[in-house]
């Protein structure tokens, strides 16, 4: 279980606010009237099976896709709540490079596979204005260490890394700019179970140490239990149940949630 003694803090202003988000592709309603507030330091898991709309929702929340209806607003570092749909392209990209992270299921989508690990991490720093080579390399090295990648691999390209190492490198690349919000799309999908455990433990520690807010899409309820404070269960594009993670998983109320919870194979 996630350690509730740490984040989220008792902060009364939401960091991100989704209101009535809907998206359809032709006749397919991928997302229907989703509303919620995410607070600083809070980790929200979005669970549901394939096709439930959770990945579409993540795209909408991270402003990578425009909704048909509804809006997402985000509290910028200056404290002002801004409608993401009204941001200019340059502003959106700046947000992505600085205040947000996005961890893809497939590390190849979040990394540049042919350049060195050090450059992958350093690139995000340069994007926010760092220009001292020695310091950038030093910061990159300390982040590799934090995600348990041996510093002597700093000059190797991630294409020479294992799947678990690539995923850890992707996390380092995302966190180096000290974002306040990280989106994660099935961050442990496709990894061996032993590799998953190590990654989960690492993410759990980093999230609470840095006081990060995160939105984690996963079909794995064990991942939701370990990482999140709150969970949102999706089915057919709709949020069918939401609440404290351990409450929803230990005392599921809706038929679909009961089905999901009862479908877990005992270890």
């Amino acid at each position: 279980m996630l350690d509730v003694t740490k984040a989220p803090r008792d902060d009364d202003q939401p960091l991100l606010l989704a209101e009535g988000l809907s998206k359809s592709f032709g006749r397919l309603q991928a997302c229907r009237e989703v509303s919620f507030a995410l607070y600083p330091g809070e980790v929200l898991a979005i669970v549901g099976e394939s096709g439930s709309g959770k990945s579409t929702l993540l795209q909408l929340l991270s402003a990578q896709m425009a909704p048909n209806a509804g809006s997402v607003s985000y509290r910028m570092r200056d404290g002002v709540m801004r409608d993401l749909g009204a941001l200019g392209e340059a502003e959106r990209r700046f947000l992505f490079r600085t205040d947000w992270g996005f961890v893809h299921q497939d590390p190849a989508m979040g990394l540049r596979m042919a350049v060195s690990a050090g450059a992958n991490v350093g690139e995000r720093l340069m994007a926010v204005g760092h220009n001292h080579y020695g310091k950038i390399r030093q910061t990159a090295a300390s982040w590799l260490e934090r995600v348990e990648i041996s510093v002597d691999r700093i000059d190797d390209a991630p294409k020479t890394y294992s799947g678990g190492m690539r995923q850890r490198l992707q996390i380092a690349r995302n966190l180096v700019t000290e974002p306040r919000l990280v989106f994660m799309d099935e961050p442990t999908g496709g990894l061996d179970v032993s590799v998953q455990a190590r990654l989960l433990d690492m993410m759990r520690t980093l999230v609470s140490e840095l006081g990060l807010a995160a939105i984690v899409v996963t079909h794995d309820l064990a991942v939701a239990r370990l990482l999140s404070h709150r969970v949102m269960v999706m089915q057919g594009g709709r949020v069918v149940e939401t609440g404290l993670t351990d409450q929803v998983l230990d005392d599921p109320r809706e038929p679909y949630t009961q089905l999901l919870v009862s479908s877990i194979l005992p270890a």
Binding site: M1, V4, T5, K6, P8, D10, Y39, E42, A197, R198, L200, D201, R204, L226, H229, R230, G243, L244, Q247
Partner: peptide, 25 residues
């Protein structure tokens, strides 16, 4: 949910029969 988390952080502790062990800690 946020209030319940705050209560668990500041007010109520729970000692269950079983430890839900986190790997590697």
């Amino acid at each position: 949910p946020r209030q319940i988390l705050s209560v668990r952080r500041n007010t109520i502790g729970y000692v269950s029969q079983f430890l839900r062990a986190v790997p590697r800690v």
